[in-house]
């Protein structure tokens, strides 16, 4: 873990309340898709954890939703502004045991799955992709996944885009799923798949494993979402925390 000073190269609205920020800076501590960075903002005491959407040498992409003062501030940063972030946080997705996986994302849980999809592709694994959003205004990145050659299915709650309904409506039989999204979605997907990896959120203070603020129970004892997660294996998840 290091603190890196990034420079904003692009900060663009891509859907309702959703922004994509491209940052220039040292990404060498980022080792897996599904990890996150913890962003220092001038007017907020705690840092803001945001998943790595995509990363390359010297370039980092984040996608975030404006929900409060911190993310609102981020959305107003212009090209050339600096942003301090702790990088290389969390375990990220493990692509080693992917047999015949499906990628399933909901809302602002979609971003880390894009980086994962690219990584899987590098290993000649081409999962199908299922994305869920509330409404057409909230949809993003369907085309980016398609551009990589993935078969993409999109569900919206109100039917304004893709198929009306939930991501789980697309799941018939699924051996292995990579999942990120709101907890009710994670839980619904968990019920329908045999195995997989699920990314969780928690209110964090440190983000690097020392405060126990994000600790949850699992079948293998307690785990810190920030340091032992945010990605948990199917076999260890206990839902009593949420």
């Amino acid at each position: 873990m290091r603190e890196i000073k990034f420079e904003v190269a692009e900060n663009k609205k891509i859907a309702r309340d959703i922004y994509r920020m491209t940052l220039i800076g040292d990404t060498s501590d980022i080792t897996a898709p599904g990890q996150f960075v913890n962003i220092k903002l001038p007017y907020q005491y705690l840092r803001r954890p945001v998943s790595v959407c995509d990363y390359a040498d010297g370039e980092l992409t984040l996608i975030y939703k404006t929900v409060g003062a911190g993310t609102k501030f981020m959305s107003e940063l212009s090209k050339g502004s600096n942003l301090l972030a702790l990088t290389g946080l969390g375990n990220g997705y493990d692509i080693a045991d992917a047999k015949n996986p499906v990628i399933i994302g909901g809302g602002v849980g979609v971003p880390p799955l894009y980086g994962l999809a690219k990584k899987l592709l590098e290993h000649n694994i081409k999962p199908s992709v299922i994305l869920g959003f509330n409404s057409i205004e909230d949809c993003f990145y369907g085309n980016e996944f398609k551009a990589l050659g993935f078969d993409v299915k999109i569900a919206t709650m109100d039917g304004s885009y893709g198929t009306k309904g939930l991501v789980t409506d697309f799941i018939e039989s699924c051996e292995y799923a990579y999942v990120c999204g709101p907890v009710p979605m994670l839980k619904a997907v968990y019920e329908k798949v045999q195995d997989g990896q699920f990314s969780f959120e928690a209110r964090m203070a440190c983000g690097f494993g020392v405060c126990m603020g994000c600790s949850i129970r699992t079948k293998n004892g307690f785990k810190r979402i920030c340091a032992d997660g945010p990605v948990l294996k199917y076999s260890e998840i206990l839902w009593e925390n949420s």
Partner: peptide
């Protein structure tokens, strides 16, 4: 001790609240 239930952290102006609960 496992400590308290989630959420355990709240942000404040120039500070924070924790209820880790001596994990």
């Amino acid at each position: 001790r496992f400590g308290n239930e989630q959420p355990r952290i709240a942000e404040c102006t120039s500070g924070m609240i924790n209820s880790v609960g001596l994990q």
